[in-house]
Design a protein around this nucleic acid. Structure first.
Length: 603
RNA sequence: GCCCCCGUAGCUCAAUGGACAGAGCAUCUGACUUCGGAUCAGAAGGUUGUGAGUUCGAAUCUCGCCGGGGGCGCCA
């Protein structure tokens, strides 16, 4: 490892940590202990404040060596305690720290709270919106997410993908990477043909109203219903598919028109959600290149052409020489020559590298496609691009179910449409803001309701691990109290409220001269962890770390708010606390923005 | 048959292999003539599904079992 010193939590104090680490090393080197790596953690006690390391690993190693040499060492915990107190005796107190203690095998270094406070607050206020952002890594990361189907509805299951993908992009960017936000819109396929069939036969000449996506989805559901009730109509759909394949001008024109309706609907949705893309790939552009690629793979002997009796396949395990079934067989072209998802995904995988040459190509796709994506990556390697295949990464997440473990399915009508959810949430938020803040203008109320509702909707998608199934439930989605986005937004609003009433410019940097209140210490502690948590969230691709921090930060601020007067405090305390409030507001705002949630000024 | 994920308080979920397993919701009790009560304080709630193993130390890592969900040749 290039950097054996693991610094966590307090990135702002890297230099001091490194200095102390070196000093501990040289102290240990004076004893016959084996080499050990020194890891730092925040002291886990509430109201206590500093960094901590333990000597258990070193003690265990030492004990093993002693035993091997025929000695009987002390029990490990006692040894660790012994080492800790020896280090504690020899360690000089570094500047910025108040005291060092050795307890239970741990070495705890407590920050000088006043000095630390000034340093954290000054850093946040100097860096402003950039607080939490990392140094450029020089890496380019392409993230494909959302991937909607035209001619279909947009429901809460799709929402998790968009919300996660968007937050992931923000986080990777904040960590110092160049991020390319890519969408892949599926505008061809059997679902489109079904829609066209239904439209032509029963809705010819109709146009969508305000809510385009809903209308498109309704017609799609209707098509499925009609076909289920009268299966003999399937032949008409097959005929239509044939006309599409032959690029019949009439069908092509209808496809173009209806596709456009869906695209416009998607734009509306992305605008509401506040999500943007740098590049959009379309299914129809990949169809032909995909078919050509398949032919090439057959020629090269990578794919096996079983037509006309069977499809074109890639026997991945066989090609890799794997005995145990692992990647199995990937079908890359239908026996009638029409394309599949895989036909296009192989081309798309190549195209991404040809166009952008990313260091990492991320696919935000739900967990059910894990095997499929591994097959795509392996095939990419077999096609002669093992280097690219290694740079592909499946960001997998679990699905959104309805209560009772009911799967959301657009065909069975068990959907909660995104439009409905947003409308309901806005309505509910509007009622609350009318009650809580009646002096706002109607326009302000609408705006507040909008950002609060969206925050509330997005939060549950981000606040649980991606491997956990989200159960959508109306009551929980519309509950704005407790562990939810509005709670965090409210802390931001309260901070803003104090700053608004300040009436003077924000005081310059100040060293507090009073004893800090425990809630102040806790608040500063969480603020100081932001840069480190951003790095961690990016490295492990877990937005959850930031929702956790945002919630803790908000909670700490609300505690502080209840315990510590700011505006009415005496001079030094007032100045220091005003700056702390400003720093807390900034940290909350930065976190919320990374999560794709708007921090409101009032609510 | 093979593979993947989940199991922590009544419910929804947290917890880099570390110090007493923490929040919210729900339930009960309280908050000063002070910056916004979408808030705060307190009570109650646990053999981390189960049995072994690794380790100084396991909710976390390994294996078995139980329960739930998902994926495995022409769906996307």
């Amino acid at each position: 490892m290039a950097n054996p010193i693991i610094l966590q939590g307090y990135l702002m104090f890297e230099r001091e940590q490194e200095q102390i680490t070196n000093e501990i090393r040289s102290i240990l080197a004076q004893h016959p202990y084996p080499k050990a790596k020194i890891e730092w953690n925040p002291i886990p006690f509430a109201g206590k404040w500093g960094i901590s390391t333990s000597f258990f690993q070193l003690a265990a190693q030492w004990a093993r060596e002693q035993r091997a040499a025929g000695h009987t060492p002390l029990p490990v915990p006692q040894l660790a305690a012994q080492i800790a107190s020896r280090v504690r005796e020899l360690l000089s107190l570094p500047s910025g720290f108040q005291r060092v203690e050795a307890v239970n095998g741990y070495l705890n270094l407590y920050f000088d709270p006043l000095e630390f406070t000034r340093r954290v607050v000054d850093t946040v206020l100097e860096q402003g919106e950039r607080f939490g952002w990392g140094e450029p890594t020089g890496k380019r990361i392409l993230v494909e997410f959302s991937q909607p189907n035209t001619h279909k509805a947009f429901h809460v299951g799709h929402l998790r993908n968009v919300v996660l993908g968007d937050a992931l992009c923000n986080i990777l960017e904040a960590a110092g990477n160049e991020v390319i936000r890519a969408n892949y819109i599926n505008d061809t396929g059997l679902h489109v043909i079904k829609w066209l069939w239904n439209y032509q036969k029963y809705h010819a000449g109709e146009e969508p109203g305000e809510d385009k996506t809903r209308w498109m989805g309704d017609l799609y559901a209707e098509a499925n219903r009609r076909l289920e009730e009268n299966p003999e109509l399937e032949s008409e759909v097959r005929q239509l598919y044939a006309r599409w394949d032959q690029r019949d001008p009439e069908i092509l024109a209808l496809w173009e028109k209806s596709r456009q309706w869906s695209l416009e609907g998607f734009e509306q949705i992305y605008a509401i959600l506040g999500v943007r893309f740098d590049h959009i790939f379309y299914d129809h552009e990949l169809e032909k290149p995909g078919q050509e690629l398949v032919e090439e793979l057959v020629r090269k002997g990578i794919a096996i052409d079983e037509r006309p009796r069977g499809p074109v396949i890639v026997r991945i395990d066989e090609l890799l020489g794997l005995e145990k079934e692992t990647y199995r067989v990937l079908v890359i072209l239908r026996s009638d020559g029409t394309s599949l998802y895989s036909t296009k995904d192989l081309v798309l995988a190549l195209k991404k590298f040809e166009l952008f040459n990313p260091d990492l190509s991320v696919y935000v796709v739900d967990v059910r496609q894990s095997l499929y994506l591994q097959q795509i990556y392996k095939t990419l390697a077999l096609m002669g691009h093992p280097d690219w295949a290694e740079r592909c990464y499946h960001f997998s997440y679990e699905v959104v179910n309805l209560p009772g473990n009911v799967t959301i399915a657009s065909r069975e009508g068990t959907v909660v449409l995104l439009e409905d959810l947003i409308r309901e949430a806005r309505q509910r938020a509007l009622e609350v803001v009318r009650e809580k803040n009646p002096h706002l203008s109607a326009q302000e109320m609408e705006e507040v309701a909008r950002v609060v509702a969206l925050g509330a909707i997005k939060y549950p998608m981000l606040a649980r691990d991606a491997t956990k199934i989200v159960t959508f439930d109306w009551n929980a989605a519309l509950d704005f109290n407790g562990q939810a986005a509005p709670y965090i937004q409210y802390a931001h609003v309260r901070a803003n409220s104090i700053l608004r009433k300040m009436e003077t410019p924000l005081p310059p940097s100040v060293l507090p001269t009073y004893e800090l209140h425990p809630t102040e210490i806790q608040l500063i502690d969480w603020i100081s962890r932001l840069p480190g948590e951003v790095q961690k969230a990016a490295q492990e691709m877990r937005p959850l770390y930031l929702t956790n921090l945002a919630y803790e930060l908000a909670r700490a601020f609300n505690d502080f708010y209840a315990e510590c007067p700011v505006l009415k405090a005496d001079e030094n305390m007032r100045a220091a606390r005003l700056r702390l409030v400003a720093a807390a507001k900034q940290a909350l705002a930065n976190l919320l923005r990374m999560l794709g949630i708007v921090p409101p000024e009032v609510m």
